[in-house]
Every structure is written in C-alpha cells, then in structure tokens.
Amino acid sequence: MAHLTIEELPSEEYYMPGNALCAGCGESLAMRLALKILGWRTIVITVPGCMSAALIMGASAVPLLVGPFASGGALLSGVETALEAKGVKDVNVVAFIGDGGTADIGLQALSAVVERGHNVIYICLDNEAYMNTGGQRSGATPLRAATTTTPGGRLFRGKLQPKKNIPLIMADHEAPYVATASIGFALDYMEKVKKAAGIRGPKYIQVLCPCPVGWGYHESKTVELARLAVATRVWPLYEVEKGRLKITYEPRTPKPVREYLRAQRRFDHLTEEDLAELQKLVDEGWAELKLKARSAEE
C-alpha cells in the first residue's frame, strides 16, 4: 500500500471546532483525523465520555447516535444490521469510545460485536482513565499511574495493576484487523483507519490520546507526549491482520521510559525503584511483542 501523505488529506472538517473539549485534547485530534479519512458516508456512534460531550452538542457533521455507556458494540450491531436490511453497502459504521467504555463497562458488547462479525470499525480513544468524570482509573490505566481513585502517595502507589491489553484480546477474537496507534504518529494512525475501512468485518483500533488534565502536563505538549509514548516503547505501534502481528514503527534507539513518565504529574510519586521496575516491564513487553512479530513472519 502506498503511504498516505499530508497533501492527500481533505481540507473538509467533519469534527467541528469550538466544541466542549479542552485545549490540547488528544481525543479531539484522533476524532478529527479519523473523520478526514472516513468522510461523509460515515455514521458515528459514541457513548458517554469526553467525546460524547463534544458530539451531542453539535461537533459532529456526520450522523451521530449516542447510547448508554455499556452499549457501544450493540449500537454498532444495530446500525450495521439495519443498513444491511436496507441494502446500504457503502457507509462506514464507526464507534469512537473511551478506554473506560471499551475496557470496562462496554467490554461485553465489544466482544460480542466482534464475535458476531459485524462489518464495523471500533476506535478506542485511549486517554487511560475516565476523564469525563474527572479522571478515575479504568482497566486501561497503566501500572502506577495516579488517578483520582488510585492516588499516588506513600501508601497508595497509583494503580496497582497493569494496563488491560484490549488490542491483543481483540486479536484473540480473530478480528480481521486490529491496530494500535498514537495521535503523535498521525499518518500511521490515518493509514490504519483507511486500511480498516477497506476490510470487511469487525475492525478495532486503539489510539493513544494524551490528556493534559488527567495526565498533568501543559496543553501544548499533547503531541509531544503521544510521540514520547512510542519513542520509549511504552505504547508500541502495531497491527494484527489475520492473526499476523506487524510492528508498524520501531524507534531505532528507544528513549528511556523515565523521560516519558517524568513529563507527567500522574507519575510524580514514582521512586527510582519504580522507574527501574517500569523500564524493565516495558523492555519485557517489547521483547514479547518482537517475538510475536517474528513468529508472524515465519
């Protein structure tokens, strides 16, 4: 596939500015870029979360349906099936849902829409916590991150469990296309959206969307953090197609994990040992991923 270039992107905006979301919102960027690829023949689905707050007040230029927090997968199923009943074949049915709506309350419906094989795209806007309600932990919050329900302190040391790995859970559902992305690698993300739109069946993309309010950094640094997450291998970029995992971007010399962590207040409480532990876990995770990618090549 020929790589996408910035010149090819449409100048149309489908995600309207001046909406309710914060300055420096990573989700906003993810939404805007994806819709540029998907275009007018798209029906957007969302559930409560930061993005719904923007969309229900008019930020969506394409048709929009919002349902209960747990219902993302069900909404996709219903709209896709109804379009099929009507004989409409060229419309993208796409959900944009936060990591809480994906990894926690909506996991059943997500699993089911993929298991039933509906022809839909599910994009998880991953800001690693329940940001719309003020930043509580979700299953996708990373190990040791402080949230309002997992404060960082001497006794309670941020989240005690690692991030739930939804992309690999989706790959194990044998979804025809699964990918991770980061808004810091816009073209890589958009290419993945484009690719997903061209494949039949359920597609899942989880895009990392830094959140200045929840993560604790200046709003001008969103893209920088989204890049650092990849450059430190904390958030590797890969895709899984028909069970074969491919790393889509490899930082040649990875930056130390501490550079990423020290840039965010949610990791302020980390000690030197914590940093070392997290570096070790990231290295192990990367090695495992490489192994998966290598076995896919064979």
Partner: peptide, 20 residues
C-alpha cells in the same frame, strides 16, 4: 441479531430503529 444480552438487545434495537 443473535445478541449477547438484554442491555445490548434493547440498544441494538434502538440503534436499528434509529436508521428508520
């Protein structure tokens, strides 16, 4: 739609009905 539960059953029905 061979749905996976009633919360989803109602919401998939709502979604389908929303398309008219």
């Amino acid at each position: 739609i061979t749905i996976e539960g009633e919360h989803s059953a109602m919401m998939a029905t709502v979604a389908a009905a929303s398309t008219g």
